[in-house]
Design a protein around this nucleic acid. Structure first.
Lengths: 225, 225
DNA sequence: ATTAAAATATGATAATTGTCATGATTTGTT
DNA sequence: AACAAATCATGACAATTATCATATTTTAAT
C-alpha cells in the first residue's frame, strides 16, 4: 500500500499541511479502497468514521429534496477530501456521495484526523481555508440558482465540466453524466435539461456522440442568456 | 468602552474559545461602531481589515447577480461574526453587508484575529465548526432554490424570520423587510413576491399592518406546497 | 400639512418551466 | 444476437414565474 508521505495527491488538499510524522501515522492506519462507478460511498444521514482522500476519479455530492429529486450540490475531484464537514461538526452526513467514475480513495479514520486537528494549527488553518473557499463557491451557486435561467445554468454547467475535468481525445467531455445528472445539477426536470441540450445542439453550441457531449462553441455557450 | 472578557455576546460565537489573555488583547485594539439601518457595512469586492462581532441588530449579506439584482445569501444576527471568511482566505469580500436595523458592532483588526488563529487551536477549531455549519446551511439553501416553488420558498422564509427573530408585541414580525428584500431572499421578481404575499393574505395564512407582516397560521404556512 | 418620491398592489400578457404521454435509442444481460 | 430495461427525445399542454403597465398607499422631505 502506498505511503502518504510520498503521495503526490496530498499537494492538492489540506493534508499537505501535516508533518512527516503525522503523515507516517496516517499512512499506518489508512485503508485504500476501489469504488466502482455508480457505487454509493456514503449516504445522507450516515455517520462517517473518517474522511476520504480522492486519489482518482470523480464523485457527486447529492441531497434528496422533499419532492423526491436528488440535487447535486457539488462535484468532488481527484485531490479533494471528502467528509471533513461531518467529521468536524460530529454530525451525520447531510449529503450522499456517489462515484461518477471508477475511483481510488484512501480512507483515514476520524480519530486520526481529529487528533491532527487538535495538534497541528497549520493543518486546521488549511482545512479552514478550504472550507472558506467552498463557502464562497456555495454563495455563487445560490445566486445562480436564484437568478439565472435553466438555459443559462446548463450552459455554465457544461463550461464548468469542460474546464474542470477536460475532454477525451475526440473532444467529448471526459466526465460522462446522464441527462438526469445534468438536470440535478441545474435543478430542473430531466425533460427540461434534455430539451435545452437539444436546443444547444440545434444552435451548434454543442454536438453529441451517443450520450457524450462535445462543446463546439465555447464562446457561444458563455454568451447564452 | 466595554471589555471583551466580560462581554456576553461572545458566548454565541467562536470568540468564546479565546483565552482571557487573548480577549484582553482584543479588547485593547477593538473599536465599537454604531451602524444605522440601511447603512452598508462593507461592499462586495472590498478588502476587509478585520471582522465584526455583532452585538445588536441584524444585517443582510447580498451578492449582486449579473442581471443586476441583489441576492440575499444570508442573514447575520446578534452574536454572529461577520467577515471571517474574507480574512481567512485573504480575499476581497464576495458579499455586501447592509444593516437591516440599527446595529451595534465591534470591529476587531485582522492582525489580531489571524494571530489568534495561529496560536490557539481551540479558536481555529471553533471557527471551523462554525463554517461547517454555514456550509451545511448553504447546501439546504441550494436545494431549496433548485427544487421548491416561489410560494414554498416564501412561506419558509416567513417561518424562518418568525422563528429566528421573533415578533413584536402586536404579533408582527420584528424584522421589517421590504417586499423587495423578500424577493431577494427567495430569488424572484419583487412583483411575484408581493403577489404571493397577497395570496397568503387571502388564504388567511398571514395578515398585514402597513408593510408589517403577521403570521396568522404557522401550521398552514408549513403545509404550503 | 403638502407634495414628491418610494414602496406596495394588481391586471394583462408573455416567457419559462414542469408534467404527462409516447416513441426512439442505447445499454446491459443472457 | 436477442431481449428487456434504462435512458434519451419530443410533442402537447398546464402551471409557474417574469415583465410591463398602471393604480394605490406609504414614507419622507419641505
Amino acid at each position: 500500500m502506498g505511503k502518504c508521505e510520498q503521495c503526490i495527491i496530498k499537494q492538492f488538499n489540506s493534508l499537505k499541511a501535516l508533518t512527516k510524522d503525522e503523515l507516517v501515522r496516517i499512512s499506518a492506519c489508512k485503508t485504500s479502497k476501489t469504488i466502482k462507478k455508480g457505487q454509493v460511498i456514503f449516504e445522507e444521514g450516515e455517520m462517517l468514521n473518517g474522511v476520504y482522500c480522492v486519489k482518482d476519479g470523480i464523485c457527486k455530492l447529492t441531497k434528496l429534496s422533499e419532492n423526491g429529486k436528488d440535487q447535486i450540490v457539488k462535484m468532488v475531484v481527484k485531490g479533494d477530501l471528502l467528509g471533513q464537514r461531518s467529521i468536524i461538526s460530529e454530525e451525520r452526513s447531510n449529503l450522499q456521495a456517489t462515484a461518477l467514475n471508477d475511483m481510488e480513495v484512501c480512507f483515514i479514520p476520524k480519530s486520526e484526523i481529529l487528533s491532527d486537528l487538535q495538534k497541528n494549527p497549520n493543518f486546521t488553518f488549511d482545512v479552514l481555508k478550504d472550507m472558506a473557499k467552498d463557502l464562497k463557491e456555495s454563495d455563487d451557486v445560490i445566486v445562480n440558482m436564484a437568478q439565472k435561467s435553466v438555459r443559462q445554468r446548463l450552459a455554465e454547467t457544461l463550461i464548468y465540466i469542460h474546464d474542470s475535468f477536460g475532454v477525451n481525445p475526440d473532444g467529448t467531455l471526459s466526465v460522462l453524466l446522464s441527462r438526469e445528472d445534468y438536470a440535478n445539477i441545474v435543478g430542473t426536470a430531466t425533460e427540461s435539461a434534455i430539451r435545452v441540450l437539444s436546443q444547444f445542439k440545434k444552435e451548434n453550441l454543442i454536438s453529441t456522440i451517443g450520450k457524450r457531449i462535445k462543446i463546439e462553441d465555447l464562446e457561444g455557450l458563455k454568451r447564452v442568456e
